[in-house]
Write a protein that binds this DNA or RNA. Structure first.
Lengths: 145, 145
DNA sequence: GGCGAACTACGATCGGCGATCGTAGATGAC
DNA sequence: GTCATCTACGATCGCCGATCGTAGTTCGCC
């Protein structure tokens, strides 16, 4: 994803998105319908605080540029749709961050994850082991080919 | 670490630090001596391109504010020292990023790490399993106490 | 004691960028 | 054809890193 960034100090979407972008995506993912227009988002935002229609439009457009929203012309307007679910987006963001880690960071990441995962519950540890076993098998398969 | 951020598009230190900050840290970690003054960094940077002494000073000071450099007064000047090694810093940055991941991201992170680790070599997979075993034992110990 | 070089402190400027908005122009509804 | 709704475009503002000039401080030296 273009223009990606990550601010560990912020929590939730704000770690990966700018404030208004995050705010808009939360609204988008909270809508009943999948498709929506700028007006829908503006209406929802306006309910919270005064904000210009064009401000919402600009940022919504930016979200489209960033690949978070698909859109198609519907007469005179654009109809938008989220490209991913909220969870999907977080996964993607995580993926971006992790794949950019250098080897040293990766090793730290492993240790840290095991640690964190273990703190939550044993089931997660097993899930992790299962992942490793699956990988082993996959590699063995590759070796045959 | 204050003012932390992460730009997956950048590689190396530039993912976590701003350009001049990263440049300075590279120089600092490359110095023979641990202790150094702004003048030392300025000398090294100046060898690459023209840059004002004060520019280096300002950014070095910023690195101190961010907790990357310790410093103490030595007469009229400050003597600086890196708080962490390069590897230590990367580890810390990784830690910051990972510990801020939400549960969904954490699960993705695990899967992705196993994947990446497996691609590199089997030894890493074993290292990971060892980590898990160690964790298991640690938990069992906790249970007894 | 006082001068000069080395440093720091402070603040100004510049550029990039997100946030915000106004205005002009296009277009569908009636 | 008129009008409300939308988009396109560009301007402004604030924040912040990069960059630097200048003023003031302090140590070394004569």
């Amino acid at each position: 994803m273009k223009g990606m960034r990550f601010r560990p100090e912020e929590s939730g979407l704000r770690a990966s998105l700018f404030d208004l972008e995050a705010e808009i995506m939360e609204i988008v993912w909270g809508l009943d319908a999948e498709d929506f227009a700028v007006a829908d988002v503006h209406r929802a935002l306006e309910a919270l605080r005064p904000i210009a229609y064009t401000t919402v439009m600009t940022t919504t457009s930016r979200l489209h540029d960033k690949g978070l929203l698909d859109r198609r012309k519907d007469g005179r307007r654009y109809v938008y749709r989220a490209r991913m679910t909220r969870e999907g987006f977080i996964e993607q963001a995580t993926r971006d961050v992790l794949s950019s880690l250098p080897p040293v960071g990766r090793r730290t990441a492993m240790a840290l994850l095991v640690e964190q995962v273990a703190e939550v519950d044993d089931g997660e540890l097993e899930r992790l082991e299962a992942l490793i076993r699956a990988r082993r098998v996959a590699r063995a398969g590759d070796g045959d080919g």
